[in-house]
C-alpha cells in the first residue's frame, strides 16, 4: 500500500519534470540548443501567477491564462533577442550555450531586483482534498499533476503529428535547410516552438505552485536541471521520451527517498542517468528520428 502511495508521489513529481522536459526537448529538436533559460521561464510563470492572483486579486483562470501568455511571449522574446542572430549566422554551439546561461542569470537577477530574493508563499490554487481508494489516500494535487501532464503530452503529439505547423516543425527538425527550400518559414517555426515550449513551462509552473506553494527567483535552477536530466534520460528531441524521462526521474527520486536513503537521493538519481547513458547514449527513446520535433 505504501509502495503505491510512494509511486503516485513520484508520478506527481515526475509530471512536473516531464512538462518542463518537453520544452527542453522541443527546442533542442529544432535548433540543437540546450535552452538553459527554460527553467527560469517556470520562475517567470510562478511570479506572474502570484502577481495576478495575490497582488491584483484576479480569479485563478485569469492568472493561469496570463501566466501561459506571458511565458509564451517571453519565450519568443528570448529567442528573438538572444538566440536569433546566433542561429541565423550559424554561430558555434558553445556560443549558443553560453548565451542561454547568460539569459538564465539575467532573468534570475532581474526578478531578484524586482521582487527581492525572499521566497513568497503562494496561496492554495486547486485542491479537492484527497481522494480515497480503499485505505489509499491520494492527494488531489498528485492526481491533477498526472492528469494535466498526460493531457498536455497527448495535445502536443496531436499538434506535432496532425497539424500543418506540426509537420513544418518535424521538417525543420530533420533538415532546416531543406525545409526552407520547401517553402517553410523556419523563422516562424522556431519562434512557434519556443512559444509552445514556454507555454508548457507555464503549465508546469501552475502545477509546481499548486504542489509546492512557494516561489523564489532561483526556483528554476534545480527544477530546470532535473528536467534537463529527464529530457536526456528519455532521449533529447523526443516528446514521449521527455515524458518518460520525467516520470522515471520522479519515481526513482521518490522511491529512493522512501526506501533507500532520504539524504543522498540525488546521487542515486543522477547515478541512474549515468548508467542509462553508458548503456544507451542516445537516451531511452532517443533513436526514434520520426518522433523528433
Amino acid at each position: 500500500m505504501n509502495f503505491i502511495t510512494q509511486t503516485l508521489n513520484g508520478l506527481g513529481l515526475g509530471s512536473i519534470y516531464a512538462l518542463v522536459a518537453l520544452g527542453y526537448s522541443m527546442v533542442y529538436g529544432i535548433v540543437q540548443l540546450i535552452n538553459f533559460a527554460h527553467g527560469d521561464i517556470i520562475m517567470v510563470g510562478g511570479y506572474i501567477l502570484y502577481l495576478i492572483l495575490v497582488n491584483l486579486g484576479m480569479p485563478l483562470w485569469m492568472a493561469i491564462a496570463a501566466a501561459i501568455l506571458v511565458c509564451a511571449v517571453a519565450g519568443v522574446l528570448i529567442q528573438r533577442v538572444a538566440y536569433h542572430r546566433l542561429l541565423v549566422h550559424n554561430a558555434a554551439r558553445i556560443s549558443l550555450l553560453i548565451t542561454a546561461l547568460g539569459v538564465s542569470i539575467f532573468l534570475q537577477n532581474l526578478f531578484m531586483i524586482l521582487f527581492s530574493s525572499n521566497p513568497r508563499s503562494v496561496p492554495t490554487l486547486i485542491d479537492f482534498g484527497s481522494l480515497s481508494l480503499g485505505s489509499l489516500a491520494i492527494p488531489s494535487k498528485t492526481v491533477i499533476n498526472i492528469v494535466v501532464s498526460v493531457i498536455m503530452m497527448v495535445g502536443l503529439q496531436l499538434l506535432v503529428n496532425k497539424t500543418k505547423i506540426g509537420k513544418a516543425m518535424q521538417a525543420a527538425s530533420e533538415d532546416t535547410g531543406a525545409a526552407k527550400l520547401m517553402g517553410i518559414n523556419t523563422n516562424y517555426v522556431v519562434a512557434f516552438t519556443f512559444a509552445i515550449g514556454s507555454a508548457l513551462a507555464a503549465v508546469g509552473a501552475v502545477l509546481y505552485c499548486n504542489t509546492y506553494p512557494q516561489i523564489s527567483p532561483d526556483m528554476g535552477n534545480l527544477l530546470g536541471l532535473k528536467a534537463f536530466v529527464a529530457a536526456v534520460l528519455g532521449g533529447i528531441g523526443s516528446i514521449p521520451g521527455a515524458m518518460l524521462g520525467g516520470y522515471i526521474l520522479g519515481v526513482a527520486e521518490t522511491l529512493t527517498k522512501g526506501y533507500v536513503t532520504s539524504t543522498a537521493y540525488d546521487a542515486v538519481v543522477f547515478g541512474i542517468l549515468i548508467l542509462v547513458l553508458l548503456i544507451k547514449p542516445t537516451g531511452l527513446l532517443g533513436e526514434n528520428r520520426k518522433e523528433k520535433v
Binding site: 505504501n2 502511495t5 510512494q6 508521489n9 513520484g10 506527481g12 513529481l13 492527494p139 498528485t142 504542489t211 509546492y212 512557494q214 526556483m219 534545480l222 527520486e253 521518490t254 522511491l255 527517498k257 522512501g258 532520504s262 539524504t263 537521493y265 540525488d266
Partner: peptide
C-alpha cells in the same frame, strides 16, 4: 529520522514514510 537535501521542495516521500 528522515533527511532531505538543502533546497528540496518535495517532501512527499519522507512524509508518506513517516505517516506509516
Amino acid at each position: 529520522k528522515e533527511g532531505y537535501a538543502n533546497g528540496s521542495t518535495d517532501f512527499n516521500a519522507q512524509l508518506t514514510k513517516i505517516k506509516e
